[in-house]
C-alpha cells in the first residue's frame, strides 16, 4: 500500500493568496458558461409569468399614461396629434377639476386622523379581549366589514342615511338633534360617505395596530407602571413612540386609499342611480371625476391628463410623508 502524502509547507494554508498563477489547468469554460446560461434561463422562465403580468398590465399602462396625456386622442381612432400641455392647460381652467382636488383633499385630510385615532382606540380597547379565550371573535367582528364588497354594504348605508326613514336620522332625532339631509345635502353627503368608509376600512387598520401593539415589549410598560407612571403618560411616552412605525404605515395606507376611493362614492352618490357626483358635486373626488370624464363624457385624453395629475399627487404625498417620517418616526 503506497502512502500518498501531501506535505505542503503550510498545512495551515496561511500563505495562499494567488491561486491563478502557475500551471493549473482551467475548467472547460465554455461548458461552464453554457450551464450558467441555462440556469439563468430557468430562473427567467419561472419568473416570466408573474413578471409579464406586472409589466403588461401595470408598467406598460404607466408608460402609456405619459404618452396619452400629451396627445389629443380619440380612443377609438388611432389619429393622434401632439397637443403637448394643452390638456393640462384645459384642466387648470376647469373649475370642477380643481374642486375635485379640493374635495379629495378635504376627504383625505379628515380620514387620516379619523382613521388613525379610531383604529388605535379600538385596538387599545380590543387588545385584552383578543388574547382571551376565543378572543378572535371580537377581532372577527371588527374585521368582517373589510372583507365584504363595498357596493353591497354601501347599499345598506344609503338606506341608513335615508332622510325620512333611515336609522341615522332616527338616532339623531332620538337625542334631540336635527335631522340631516345626508346624501342629499351639500354639506353632509361627503361625511356620510366617510362614515361608510370608516366602518368598512377600520377593521384592517385595527388589525395592523393590534400587531404593532403586540410588538411593544411588555417589560417597558411594566417598568413604567412599577415606577408609578399614569396610563396617559405611559401611552404618550412609551407606547406611542414605539408604535410610530406602525402608525406611519397606517397613515400612508390611509392616505393612498382615501385619495383613490371610488366604489363607495360611486355607489352612494356617483352612479347613474345616485346623484351624479353628489349634490352640487360635493362628493366628486379626483378619482370619481376621472371615471366620469372618461366613461361618461368620453374625454379620454383629458381623463388621462387627470390621471397623471393623480399619479403625481399620490407619489408626492407618499414622498412627503416619508420625509416627515424620517424625523418623527422612531425606529428601534
Amino acid at each position: 500500500m503506497t502512502i500518498t502524502k501531501l506535505v505542503s509547507n503550510d498545512p495551515e494554508g496561511a500563505h495562499i493568496t494567488h491561486l491563478n498563477s502557475g500551471t493549473k489547468p482551467p475548467t472547460p469554460s465554455l461548458i461552464a458558461w453554457a450551464r450558467k446560461a441555462k440556469d439563468r434561463l430557468v430562473a427567467y422562465g419561472l419568473l416570466f409569468p408573474a413578471m409579464s403580468v406586472f409589466v403588461v398590465f401595470f408598467y406598460l399602462p404607466a408608460a402609456f399614461l405619459l404618452y396619452i396625456s400629451f396627445f389629443h386622442w380619440g380612443i377609438l381612432s388611432s389619429a393622434t396629434k401632439f397637443v403637448g400641455l394643452a390638456n393640462f392647460r384645459t384642466l387648470i381652467h376647469q373649475p370642477l377639476f380643481l374642486k375635485s382636488l379640493e374635495t379629495s383633499g378635504y376627504y383625505t385630510l379628515v380620514m387620516i386622523p379619523a382613521t388613525v385615532m379610531l383604529a388605535l382606540g379600538i385596538a387599545l380597547i380590543l387588545k385584552e379581549a383578543v388574547t382571551a379565550r376565543r378572543g378572535g371573535i371580537w377581532r372577527a367582528a371588527v374585521f368582517l366589514p373589510h372583507v365584504t364588497p363595498v357596493v353591497a354594504t354601501s347599499i345598506i348605508w344609503i338606506w341608513i342615511f335615508n332622510p325620512q326613514f333611515g336609522l341615522a336620522n332616527f338616532l339623531l332625532k332620538a337625542i334631540h338633534l336635527p335631522a340631516l339631509g345626508w346624501l342629499e345635502s351639500v354639506h353632509w353627503a361627503l361625511p356620510a360617505v366617510m362614515i361608510d368608509t370608516l366602518w368598512h376600512s377600520l377593521g384592517l387598520y385595527v388589525i395592523i395596530f393590534l400587531a404593532g401593539l403586540a410588538n411593544v415589549p411588555r417589560e417597558l410598560v411594566e417598568v413604567a407602571q412599577l415606577d408609578g407612571a399614569k396610563r396617559g403618560r405611559i401611552f404618550r411616552r412609551i407606547i406611542w413612540p414605539l408604535l410610530s412605525p406602525t402608525t406611519f404605515f397606517v397613515v400612508i395606507l390611509a392616505t393612498v386609499n382615501s385619495w383613490q376611493a371610488f366604489s363607495q362614492i360611486y355607489t352612494m352618490t356617483g352612479g347613474p342611480h345616485g346623484g351624479a357626483g353628489g349634490p352640487a358635486f360635493s362628493t366628486t373626488t379626483d378619482a370619481l371625476l376621472v371615471y366620469q370624464t372618461a366613461f361618461i363624457y368620453d374625454h379620454f385624453s383629458l381623463a388621462a391628463a387627470m390621471s397623471l395629475v393623480l399619479f403625481a399627487i399620490i407619489l408626492l404625498l407618499t414622498f412627503l410623508q416619508k420625509r416627515i417620517s424620517n424625523r418623527v418616526v422612531f425606529y428601534r
Binding site: 502512502i3 500518498t4 501531501l6 506535505v7 505542503s8 498545512p11 495551515e12 494554508g13
Partner: peptide, 14 residues
C-alpha cells in the same frame, strides 16, 4: 484536511 488543504492521505494505520 485543515483550512482548505489536504494534510495527509493514508490508511488509518499510516
Amino acid at each position: 484536511m485543515n483550512q482548505g488543504s489536504v494534510c495527509q492521505i493514508g490508511t488509518p494505520s499510516d
